[in-house]
Amino acid sequence: MENRVEIIICGFGGQGIVRAGYIIGYAAAISEDLESSFVPSYGPEARGGECASRIVIAREKIDYPFITTIDILITMSEPAYKKYVNYLKKGGIILYDEDLVELDDRARIASKTYGIPATRIAEELGNRIVANIVMLGFFTSVTGIITYEGMKRAVEVGVPARFREINLKAFDIGYSYGEKLKKERESEEPLRN
């Protein structure tokens, strides 16, 4: 991990975007003993409106806890993608729900893009509300910033007790999906000289 990583997770209100942001921030600060800051979307938004969580993770004390440019964009809706992709740093990373977001030319600024049908996976698990946690599992796998154990502990703390089981399942599925995708890519990509 670089010394400072700036992350935005965005989508519609009601998709658990704020919860997911809190869990990432908590995992970094508490599970991993890194420094982190988290700012939830805080405007007059309602369910269905655009929603974003902003997270900064760093190895050292964070002077400026707000986003400047985005290193990692995690997007679960098309409007949110369109809004935030403009702030993505060159060489940044995009994670997206591939059923809900269609990347356009602007995604070329990213060094890597990773798609997952997070909402569909959640629906197959029986509750689309856990799509955010599927995405967190996926994020944990493909970025490697937070360890599997560290994020899992944060998910346990960050979700209501009665939904813990389904959320942990969602987390594992998202994580495995990421691991599989990484392996596929490694075997596809020819060795570069």
Binding site: G25, S37, I62
Partner: peptide, 10 residues
């Protein structure tokens, strides 16, 4: 101020 009230930190 509002920025601090909604900022999460360690």
């Amino acid at each position: 101020d509002e920025r601090l009230s909604h900022l999460y930190e360690k």
